[in-house]
């Protein structure tokens, strides 16, 4: 279970998160929507421990453990995975090598045996196939020269291989074609279960037709201003953010 209470954070002295309260029980998928610049990516970075994102107040625990004090790699070992809005290129680093290094780092941290090249490749090939990716992607350098959609699929490939307990998906649907969207959603749905939860950041209701969330939250100007069921996404799609932000301001 992810529990965020009164979380505030700043970048370069500028307050971006202004008090986030959000609880995602184990097994649930929550969607976060909100206007550009609202702080959605910031929230995902703060949860995964990016440098420069300074927490100024509040708490965040995962299964009862304070994650804010942990290094990024420790959070990864605890089962948190961030699918980047803008996946990063690693020139000269083979995708398979990267995946195997990552997977074995996690296994080591968890006291599990490392996978040898053969075991790993078997798993990787199966995952690639499931995501309808070409095996070529394993041989290429991490995200280098990948199309926007390929990068997003590669994030999901990593998620599938690393099998996190909590996935933070930051606009994984942007840049995906219709087929890819469906495949990626299937990837997420396949992971769903009592030991998996996800925070899905998106701008589009369409993704939520495939990945039906348990709850939808609206993040605006560093605060969650409204929460509801899947129907909230539909309402937003129809009316935009202006109305909701107005209501929230009146209520405050």
């Amino acid at each position: 279970m992810l529990e965020i209470k009164g979380l505030t954070a700043e970048i370069d002295g500028k307050e971006i998160l202004k008090g986030i309260d959000l609880t995602i029980p184990q097994g649930e998928v929550h969607a976060v929507m909100g206007p550009n610049g609202a702080g959605k990516s910031t929230l995902s970075y703060v949860l995964s421990g990016r440098e420069g994102y300074e927490v100024t107040g509040g708490t965040a625990t995962f299964n009862g453990v304070d994650i804010l004090a942990m290094e990024p790699e420790e959070r990864a070992a605890a089962g948190i995975f961030l699918a980047f809005q803008y996946p990063v290129e690693l020139p000269g680093v083979g995708n398979a090598n990267f995946l195997r290094t990552a997977l074995n780092s996690l296994r080591r941290a968890r006291g599990e045996a490392e996978l040898d090249a053969v075991q790993f490749l078997k798993q990787a090939r199966a995952a690639v196939k499931k995501l309808a990716m070409s095996e070529d992607m394993l041989k290429r350098n991490v995200n280098v020269g990948f199309s926007g959609g390929e990068k997003k699929r590669n994030e999901i490939l990593q998620m599938t291989m690393l099998a996190p307990k909590l996935a933070l998906l930051d606009e994984t649907d942007s840049g995906l074609d219709i087929d890819a969207l469906r495949i990626v959603a299937e990837g997420v749905n396949a992971s769903r279960g009592p030991d998996f939860s996800a925070l899905v950041i998106t701008h589009y209701q369409r993704l939520l037709d495939y990945i039906v969330p348990d709850h939808v939250h609206v993040l605006a100007d560093g605060r969650i201003i409204r929460s509801g069921g899947p129907e909230l996404a539909k309402e937003l799609e129809a009316q935009g953010y202006a109305g909701i932000i107005g209501e929230a301001a009146e209520a405050a």
Partner: peptide, 21 residues
């Protein structure tokens, strides 16, 4: 950060990037 968020230690991340280079 990308490497570390996948579980690599700071040192392994530097090693990986340097070797890639």
């Amino acid at each position: 950060f990308y490497c570390r968020s996948r579980g690599l230690s700071q040192e392994d991340a530097v090693g990986l990037i340097v070797n890639g280079f």
